[in-house]
Design a protein around this nucleic acid. Structure first.
Lengths: 211, 211
DNA sequence: GAGTGTGAAGCAGTTCACAGCG
DNA sequence: CGCTGTGAACTGCTTCACACTC
């Protein structure tokens, strides 16, 4: 029930619970126990209850949680079910794959602006948006009321671009460049690194083979 | 120096340190302190030393670490600097973006086989590999001596495909499908979810706005 | 009775602080 | 003297256990 600092791991699990609730709803289940959610997510019932208890009391003792009601609560907690205005920087292969990734839009993340520094690409249309040059970045980020930026640029320029983005007042960034970035405290920055995950698997494989 | 269970967070940081060492090497630095590595990675010097101490004593007191020697050690620990045989399942937008992602190959991850269930795509060539139908999966995974599988299939079929992959004897899987998968204990399974990260940012944004 | 909500206990990862070595 | 390597202290997430409620 308290509103203190919530563990990052808890927030990630809330996203998972929300997905599972969708599955339960699709199969016509109306009520779900912490045990059932834990089962689906590979965690424990106590963990599920503790995660939820950070935000309130959503269950009925002896019964469990209403699938629909809990999903609504989670969407509210996670800030979903509203519209987030997203800018994509970098229209390379990764960037365009993200741009065309359906689930984003379905969850309320709408890529309204795309930037690239390749003169070949600038001015081209992609779906209903036009690719803009990097020189327009600062101005368009401010004017376009962008909530969130997805960085899909080469590692070498990622920090510089991030600095520009932060200077333009954006406070949430998802980074796909394979490099460690620094941002001020008030900016929410998360990185997705395919390379890092592969290297962790390589580590696991090495240990399997030598064991 | 011990060889116990290593925290996942440590393994991820080792990957980062390796990158930083590459940067230091490129700028001609020969020796680096735990302090310098920590600075670059946004962590603490004690953390760096503790991470490394799980695997051995690589530094010289009063001096620091040899950039080249430490990089070699880390590559060895992470199982890099050898060739990993990778199969990609799913030749959609995400799959193909991964296929064409240069850094993978540069780090020793070589995608030698691609599968897709779309008859349109089966038989087509992508670079030097041909796309195979899913019915060849089991046989080719075994024959091809595949070390690692990248899953880039729709969420709805991901668990079924994973089960097939595990049954074919593969013990390391990187999942890009936005769903929670279950695998036996002995299989190293990691998931990359763009949606999950975006939702975590959405949570952060909501709190920023309401604070 | 079944299953939630939660303080207390347990545990794992991080930080501290300092002895020890180059 | 500088910087590593590491037990010890600490912090914070997870698990336990049970009072409580529907």
């Amino acid at each position: 029930m308290t509103d203190k600092r919530i563990p990052d791991s808890t927030v990630r699990r809330l996203s998972l619970y929300l997905r599972f609730l969708g599955e339960f709803e699709a199969s016509g289940v109306e009520t779900v126990s912490s045990e059932a959610l834990a089962e689906r997510g590979g965690t424990t019932a106590a963990q599920v209850r503790k995660d939820l208890s950070h935000f309130g009391s959503f269950g009925k003792r002896g019964l469990g949680y209403s699938v629909g009601a809990l999903a609504r609560e989670l969407r509210h907690i996670l800030g979903l079910g509203r519209h987030w205005n997203v800018a994509l920087i970098g229209a390379g292969r990764i960037g365009m794959a993200l741009f065309e990734y359906g689930p984003f839009r379905r969850r309320g993340f709408h890529i309204s602006t795309v930037f690239d520094n390749d003169p070949e690409k600038v001015g081209q249309a992609r779906g209903d948006v036009t690719i803009h040059g990097m020189e327009e970045l600062a101005e368009r980020l401010k004017e376009g009321h962008i909530d969130l930026v997805i960085l899909a640029v080469p590692a070498t320029v990622a920090q510089d671009v991030l600095d520009d983005v932060v200077r333009a007042g954006v406070t949430a960034v998802l980074n796909y460049a394979p490099t460690q970035l620094r941002a001020p405290e008030h900016v929410a920055l998360r990185s997705v690194s395919m390379l890092l995950e592969l290297e962790a698997l390589s580590y696991a494989l090495s240990r399997q083979r030598s064991a």
